[in-house]
Amino acid sequence: MKKLLVLLVCALSLQVTAQSSGQNWLTNYKTALTTAASLNQPILTFVTDGSNSKALQLLEQELFDTETFRSLKGKVVFLKMDVTSSNVDARRHATHFTKSESVPALGLVDQYKEMIGEPLNEITSENINAFIALLNTTF
């Protein structure tokens, strides 16, 4: 019951955005941590600067639009952090979750903020495939 109440409060108080993959991304770091802890799930952090770069297009084609990525729904908490905002905490947490200041980037952390595998911070087809392999072995 407590978990349900936490999730309901989170859902009502969050600003949620959707990616083309149909996944819902939380945009509040603290809420993502609370949700991850209550569900005992890791956090998949997507760091962006809002631009439509070639790297982002490659991510959408080779990761976000895949069945592997869609299958993560219900297994991870999705967190999208926009580093163009004036929120210094967002930049600091984004750097911690991806071990880089480059964007776009993805990192997988457990509910205690410990890295799971290597983050995806250099967007190439080869690195995306390695990240997909990490997701496949983790889930």
Rank of each mutant, 00 (worst) to 15 (best):
residue 1 M to P: 00
residue 2 K to R: 03
residue 2 K to V: 02
residue 6 V to C: 00
residue 7 L to G: 01
residue 8 L to A: 12
residue 9 V to N: 11
residue 9 V to R: 14
residue 9 V to D: 06
residue 9 V to P: 02
residue 9 V to Y: 08
residue 10 C to I: 14
residue 12 L to R: 12
residue 18 A to Y: 10
residue 25 W to L: 05
residue 27 T to K: 01
residue 29 Y to C: 01
residue 30 K to Y: 01
residue 33 L to C: 04
residue 33 L to P: 00
residue 35 T to E: 02
residue 39 L to P: 02
residue 40 N to I: 09
residue 41 Q to S: 08
residue 42 P to F: 11
residue 44 L to P: 00
residue 46 F to M: 06
residue 47 V to I: 07
residue 48 T to R: 01
residue 51 S to T: 15
residue 52 N to A: 12
residue 52 N to K: 11
residue 54 K to T: 06
residue 55 A to W: 03
residue 56 L to G: 00
residue 59 L to N: 07
residue 65 D to L: 09
residue 66 T to Y: 06
residue 68 T to Y: 07
residue 68 T to G: 06
residue 70 R to W: 02
residue 74 G to F: 06
residue 75 K to Q: 11
residue 75 K to R: 15
residue 77 V to M: 03
residue 79 L to T: 02
residue 81 M to Y: 00
residue 82 D to W: 15
residue 87 N to P: 05
residue 87 N to Q: 09
residue 88 V to I: 15
residue 89 D to P: 08
residue 95 T to M: 10
residue 95 T to W: 11
residue 98 T to R: 05
residue 100 S to V: 04
residue 102 S to R: 11
residue 104 P to C: 08
residue 107 G to R: 03
residue 111 Q to W: 10
residue 112 Y to Q: 15
residue 113 K to N: 09
residue 113 K to Y: 13
residue 113 K to H: 10
residue 114 E to C: 06
residue 114 E to F: 14
residue 115 M to T: 12
residue 115 M to P: 15
residue 117 G to D: 07
residue 119 P to A: 07
residue 124 T to W: 00
residue 125 S to I: 03
residue 126 E to I: 12
residue 126 E to Y: 00
residue 131 F to M: 05
residue 132 I to M: 09
residue 132 I to S: 02
residue 134 L to R: 09
residue 136 N to M: 11
residue 137 T to W: 13
residue 138 T to V: 08
residue 138 T to Y: 10
